[in-house]
């Protein structure tokens, strides 16, 4: 199928975040908990409007994509993640950018995750 022309594509925002935790968390566990928490706060309809998707996640740092008009709602929804596989965690959004490259360069490269 032909890809949409740029004017018709959904505009996105990329949220760079760090996950403050005492134990290593896998991508699968984080993803499961994220959709559970977001779903519980804003529901399936709200989640689909936000268009939340986890892009990269490694070394307790990652990028979440969302619709550009829903950054505040996404931010609120993501901060409701309190436990992952029974362990306490804290999601700290480092910054918001319009491109993946921007988010990575500005907020993720060379950043040390806070250790407790």
């Amino acid at each position: 199928m032909k890809i949409l022309p740029p004017t018709l594509r959904d505009k996105k925002r990329y949220l760079a975040f760090e996950l403050i935790c005492e134990h290593e968390i896998t991508r699968e566990d984080f993803l499961r908990e994220m959709f559970l928490c977001v779903g519980s706060l804003i529901g399936d309809v709200g989640s689909s409007e936000c268009g939340i998707r986890l892009l990269t996640f490694e070394d307790s740092k990652g990028i979440i994509r969302c619709a550009h008009t829903k950054t505040e709602l996404t931010r609120a929804a993501v901060t409701t993640i309190t436990h992952i596989s029974g362990k306490r965690v804290l999601v700290h959004i480092l910054g918001v950018s319009g491109t993946i490259a921007g988010a990575t360069e500005k907020y993720l490269e060379g950043i040390e995750v806070f250790t407790l």
Binding site: L41, E72, L73, A76, T79, T82, R88, L90, I93
Partner: peptide, 23 residues
Amino acid sequence: VSYFDLRAPREMIALAGLFGMEK
């Protein structure tokens, strides 16, 4: 009551938006 309960200021502002507080 634990440091996992702290939230960054921007996140607090986003959460306040959920119950109708203006930015």
